[in-house]
């Protein structure tokens, strides 16, 4: 086996996964797939096939089972994306409050189309309502909520990220 085709899950993540498994009846391994993928995605930004292989190996499940899960849930990115993920909710409540303008503003500002990614930003094509309708229009940046958006607010959020380095 070729070593650069191999991903060793860092031991702290293995420990977390093993702890996670304690929540389930003895012998059930699949319930940790989603959690493991979250952990690996956090580490690597997106999920490559070697990651899927390694999860399958660690949990002793079929690769196709892991692949099915990775491809089903919208939070798992299987293609290379930028460092920060921005998801603007464009569902009904947000749309009624101008989320489309917010999205176009971000597209222009970051110079990426929705669904696409630059090195720094991934502008996710978010179809699902993010459960903050009372704060519409809203978005998530790396899964943190930002509500009642205005252009000024967006400028500041982006500036903060860029300053952060």
């Amino acid at each position: 086996m070729n070593d650069n085709n191999f991903y060793n899950i860092p031991s702290e993540i293995c420990v977390k996964i093993n702890k996670w498994l304690l929540k389930f009846p003895h012998g059930e391994k699949k319930p940790a797939i989603i959690f493991a993928l979250h952990q690996i995605q956090k580490e690597n930004k997106y999920i490559k096939t070697i990651h899927i292989d390694s999860v399958a190996r660690l949990l002793d499940v079929k690769k196709i089972d892991v692949y099915e899960v990775a491809a089903f849930y919208s939070m798992f990115e299987l293609e290379k994306i930028g460092k920060h993920t921005i998801s603007v909710c464009t569902n009904v409540s947000c749309m009624l409050n101008g989320s489309d303008e917010i999205l176009s503003y971000l597209e222009k500002k970051l110079n990426i189309k929705v669904g696409k990614s630059s090195d720094k930003f991934f502008l996710k094509d978010e179809r699902e309502c993010l459960a903050a309708c009372a704060g519409a229009p809203m978005m998530q940046v790396n899964h943190k909520y930002y509500e009642n958006l205005t252009k000024d607010k967006i400028d500041k959020i982006i500036r903060d990220i860029e300053d952060e380095k």
């Binding site: 079929k62 196709i64 089972d65 099915e68 491809a71």
Partner: peptide, 17 residues
């Protein structure tokens, strides 16, 4: 298990890993 249903909705595909 070699085939799986990959993706969801109308875009779901039956394929191998």
């Amino acid at each position: 298990k070699e085939f799986g249903a990959i993706g969801r909705g109308e875009g779901m595909e039956i394929r191998t890993y």
